[in-house]
């Protein structure tokens, strides 16, 4: 296995932009996660236009900004402002492009009703960091499996299997080298943020290591499965990216998601990213973590077994 690993590391270092891009993306996402954690706001963004000197719009759940002209519909659609309040002659006109709930909430507040149940607390920084990094850790997995595709297309994989090497040893190596690079860069960035820049990271380094390791293992398993099932690499990569993005968003990697649909929420609970987010939350709160770990490991195991069987079958049929 060491022979495989050594050869894989030498080959990937001959393509410096792979590692360079990994460093750049990981660093960028961690910086963004910290910037957001330090300034995170979960309040409703309210823009108001009024000819009066001051308007009583200072509820703790609101982030209020006085504007000089009516905001564009586009800015309301893109969420720059959740709600626009026009104050004329002491009368309020409340408008939102996206949510009638926000309109009801602001109207209730302006009418003097109790609205404290709508207030939410900011997400802990650890969950923000994990959520942001998880997606980039997943996306990099298919990137490093490029060497597997190269070996497959060039016939090297078939040749290697003619020697005394086993397929499982090769596949384990080709995933392990990517695993080491991805985890190494992510941990390095987290250590730097914690020690050099004195940022509060929420979890300890061992806990981050656990979450990152399970994330990369899941990403590698899914990527290998798609690459084994789909012949054209570009199609597999496009599908992989799409699956990762959609499932990560649904799992609440960026912001908590509630679809208001019981069935969909139940399905979301089965996503590995959801379990990874739940694992991070459990680590942060000091709760039990084994259910989440076992679920992710089962997911990884099943996907790898299918991928392994498919690749082995293709090799036996001479398709590589």
């Amino acid at each position: 296995m060491m022979v495989f690993l050594k050869a894989l590391f030498i080959r990937i270092l001959a393509k410096p932009y792979y590692v360079g891009l990994s460093i750049f993306l990981t660093l960028s996402f961690v910086v963004v996660a910290f910037v957001i954690s330090n300034t995170a706001e979960t309040n409703i963004s309210v823009a108001y236009l009024s000819d009066e000197a001051s308007v009583s719009l200072d509820a703790p759940f609101m982030r209020v900004k006085k504007v000089d002209e009516t905001p564009s519909q586009a800015s309301l659609m893109m969420g720059e402002y959740d709600v626009f309040v026009l104050v004329e002659d002491g009368e309020y006109m409340v408008q939102s492009m996206t949510s009638d709930t926000y309109v009801s909430l602001v109207e209730a507040y302006l009418a003097g009703d109790e609205v404290s149940e709508f207030m939410s607390s900011p997400r802990p920084s650890a969950l923000r960091i994990v959520g942001f990094l998880m997606i980039i850790l997943f996306l990099q997995c298919i990137f490093y499996l490029d060497l597997f595709i190269e070996d497959k297309l060039s016939g090297n994989l078939s040749r290697m299997m003619m020697s005394n090497q086993t397929l499982s040893r090769y596949l384990f190596s080709v995933m392990l080298y990517g695993f080491i690079i991805i985890i190494g860069i992510a941990m390095l960035v987290i250590v730097m943020a914690s020690t050099v820049f004195n940022q509060a990271i929420g979890l300890n380094l061992g806990q981050y290591m656990l979450v990152f390791a399970l994330s990369v293992a899941s990403g590698m398993a899914l990527a290998l499965l798609l690459l084994s099932l789909i012949k054209v690499r570009d199609n597999a990569a496009a599908l992989f990216s799409l699956i990762v993005i959609l499932t990560s968003i649904l799992s609440g990697a960026f912001t908590p998601v509630d679809t208001n649909q019981a069935v969909l929420n139940a399905i979301i609970e089965w996503l590995p990213q959801r379990q990874l987010m739940a694992l991070s939350e459990a680590l942060y709160l000091g709760e039990t973590i084994w259910t989440h770990i076992v679920y992710v490991l089962v997911f990884v195991g099943v996907f790898l077994m299918i991928a392994f069987s498919v690749i082995k079958r293709h090799l036996q049929l001479g398709r590589y």
Binding site: I36, M78, G79, I245, L246, F254
Partner: peptide
Amino acid sequence: IVFALMGGVFFSPYAIGETF
């Protein structure tokens, strides 16, 4: 993908906060 996530393709960039 990174630019799409930042640019509001899948969710409003302001959903994560004004800074983002």
